[in-house]
Design a binder for these strands. Sequence first.
DNA 1: TCTTGCAGGATTGTTGAACAATCTCTAGGC
DNA 2: GCCTAGAGATTGTTCAACAATCCTGCAAGA
Lengths: 240, 240
Amino acid sequence: MSTGGAETERQAWLRTVAADVARLDRSSSAERAADILRRSITEGALPPGAQLSEIELTEVLEVSRNTLREAFRLLTHEGLLVYKLHRGVFVPELDEHDVIDLYRLRRVLEVDVVRGLDDRDPELPASRLEPLQDDVEAAEAAARADRWPVVGTANMRFHEHLIGLADSSRMDAMTGRLLAELRLLFHVIATPRELHEPYIERNRRLFELLEARKYDEAAADLHEYLLHSEQAILAAFRSR
Amino acid sequence: MSTGGAETERQAWLRTVAADVARLDRSSSAERAADILRRSITEGALPPGAQLSEIELTEVLEVSRNTLREAFRLLTHEGLLVYKLHRGVFVPELDEHDVIDLYRLRRVLEVDVVRGLDDRDPELPASRLEPLQDDVEAAEAAARADRWPVVGTANMRFHEHLIGLADSSRMDAMTGRLLAELRLLFHVIATPRELHEPYIERNRRLFELLEARKYDEAAADLHEYLLHSEQAILAAFRSR
DNA sequence: TCTTGCAGGATTGTTGAACAATCTCTAGGC
DNA sequence: GCCTAGAGATTGTTCAACAATCCTGCAAGA
């Protein structure tokens, strides 16, 4: 084995270790509290418009008010909570304008990632697509089990992994935020099946196009896909 | 004056008042502290890699540790500070990889905004371009006065206002973050003149293309512009 | 000489209580 | 019925304290 080969291997190992360390380094209390609240919000236990009382949550989460407020700040900057000065924190109520705004950004970012794959194709190993395949299959399995919220989660993860192909930490962060806000919208829609079912098949087709390295075709497909999804949500929104 | 005209005028006024109120309603202590720190960082008083001591800053800013930590959180989510658990907050040290990442996002967002102006052209009043013109002229004036950091600020504001044409609050937020991080990069570069001078002229050309509603041409120009800027920063970065 | 292990000091993480500022809601006056 | 005033509740901010963790320097051993 050459020295160069050993060096890159060592670098790769160092990277995995660094990732592990970063995972262990979670700021504990505040972030743990934020994790619990995040799940409560994205899973709909805390509906849009709900107010989060400080004293109540300090008891439930067993953290001090200061730490709880730090958790609030974290979630505020993820778009999952909004502060109203001297009135408290609330789960935001998004409207049609937000749908349009969110989807505009999704289209810009996701389509650009797919289109950009052309340039970096040679260095993109096929294994990078595996997470996408897993997500597609997870969605299909959940659909067979009639578990539509799970389908929604798998579909979201598909798009997260899609963005991940760009190797851009900032795009990942932005996408995480966008998808979290999108989840907020889902909860005002009563029919999760109609909302998620069509995209199982579309995600599979998109995955197959990527696998075949037909990136331009995939980008065009994705663009139309997101327009379709936006219209579906807007329609559901208006008729509620 | 027609009723419709008066109505939009009134709406515009309401918007400015709302903005003023929002400015007064700032969460005071924490955000005020964050404002001061933000300036210190973006203007280079706190160089990349510097650690921010809590006890020291509580004395300087005259706020409690808790409030200061809240200010830290705010700046952390703007990308201007990074937390290291049990070690403190630091001004991040960006590298070439970050330059590439930042510029990739700038290109995607800014070019898309300009290209998208085509669709909403009829409803885009010419007055919307005024802030851009002001920025161009501010940069030109500052250049004549040989004040290159001011030129840099004006150039940045030009791009902020450019994104503002999209009327997307989320794009505005993202751009604010991206440009703040970009400022961080500028401070490792010793020659502000070479860094900012070429773009005064390019911004003016871009503005004139927008004024002439040649959006496709403007988008192509902007794309090439950002590639050029990225290369300039990368070059300055490597030869430091 | 270099590494390893161990205090000691310094800094951050978290808590709880306290008070000031602001909002909400109810009661009373017109 | 509508407006105003004040009580009560909630948030904004501070302070002091303690626990947990990190960094530094020094001594012991290979």
